[in-house]
């Protein structure tokens, strides 16, 4: 069954797109991530123009983060003041990202920039995740062999330079009294990258909130989800204005697939150990990064790139 996409201006197989949405949804439910970093590359590799892929995945991320954000809200595990600050800063980043995205598109360099960013970004994050989780697994095994209970990894109490910055604000829900500057910097930079690359950025936001800002783990996921919904909503509108590449049909099919897949993934995830999940996720992120790297390094089949400019 094929469906003609009105903005991408091409027919696609509905079942294929639905399956991709469900597969990524399953992974996102399994690992508790948004899945944009897989969805966008999958669409690009299957022949959707990169501009349409990135711009249409942004509303899909809104949909896949909404139900999670609501359930954390019901459990009162959201710091709304922090989320609001991150979104406010994020709106600047999203606007800049969408403008740069449209400008690169008309220069014919969008595909290259997306590929380089994905390579660097996913390669680094995937490597770090894999490294961290493999170490955790080895530690756990060594501890079991010695017959000791697993000692929690000690973290530095964290009175670094970030906590000496001026313009301090109190975030009551997170029990924090920190400068607004790193909050704004984090919000703006992650949403800039997210808008440019079609990713929610939860898998960077969550560790950044924990390790840099020392946000308590009880509110970090909920806050990050609310931030993703807000920023990706702004990114969707920015893309619709700047490049007009948001394909509502494509996004809707992805949403349906994603919602279904996420439920299956979430129940599968209950049965797996944390460090194993993180290792698998790290590996997956790394593979996508390597795939982009190969695209950059290997001789392309077609030695010419053709871009249709606005009529």
């Amino acid at each position: 069954m094929t469906l003609y996409l009105p903005i991408a201006e091409m027919p696609v197989s509905v079942l294929l797109v639905l399956a991709m949405g469900a597969a990524v949804g399953l992974i996102s439910g399994l690992f508790g991530v948004g899945g944009g970093f897989l969805m966008t590359p999958l669409l690009i590799f299957s022949g959707i123009p990169p501009a349409v892929a990135v711009a249409s995945v942004t509303p899909q991320i809104v949909a896949s983060s909404t139900s999670g954000a609501l359930s954390y809200w019901r459990r009162k595990q959201v710091d709304f003041k922090l989320a609001f600050c991150l979104i406010a800063a994020g709106s600047l980043g999203a606007y800049a990202g969408a403008e740069l995205f449209a400008a690169l598109g008309s220069l014919g360099q969008l595909t290259l920039v997306i590929a380089i960013c994905y390579t660097i970004f996913l390669g680094t994050i995937g490597g770090l995740m894999l490294n961290e989780s493999v170490r955790a697994m080895l530690r756990a095994r060594a501890a079991r062999r010695r017959g000791e209970p697993l000692a929690p990894v000690r973290r530095s109490p964290g009175r670094g330079w970030i906590h000496r910055l001026p313009l301090k604000v109190r975030f009551r829900r997170s029990k924090l009294y920190i400068s607004i500057l790193p909050v704004f910097g984090l919000g703006a930079s992650i949403s800039f990258l997210g808008t440019l690359l079609g990713i929610g950025g939860g898998f960077i936001m969550v560790p950044a909130l924990i390790y840099l800002l020392k946000v308590p783990t009880s509110v970090v996921v909920g806050t990050s989800l609310v931030q993703i919904v807000g920023v990706m909503a702004i990114a969707t509108v920015s893309h619709a204005l700047a490049s007009q590449a948001v394909d509502i049909m494509l996004a809707f099919i992805l949403m349906i697939g994603g919602v279904i897949g996420a439920q299956i993934g979430a129940s599968l995830g209950q049965a797996m150990r944390g460090e194993h999940l993180r290792a698998l996720l790290g590996l997956l992120v790394l593979i996508v990064g390597v795939r982009f790297a190969l695209n950059l390094v290997l001789t392309p089949d077609d030695l010419f790139a053709i871009t249709t400019l606005a009529r």
């Binding site: 509303p59 809104v62 949909a63 909404t66 919904v229 909503a233 969707t236 996004a251 349906i256 919602v259």
Partner: peptide, 9 residues
């Protein structure tokens, strides 16, 4: 598109 996403989610 945002409203559609919120409702679907």
């Amino acid at each position: 598109a945002v409203v559609l996403a919120l409702v679907t989610g």
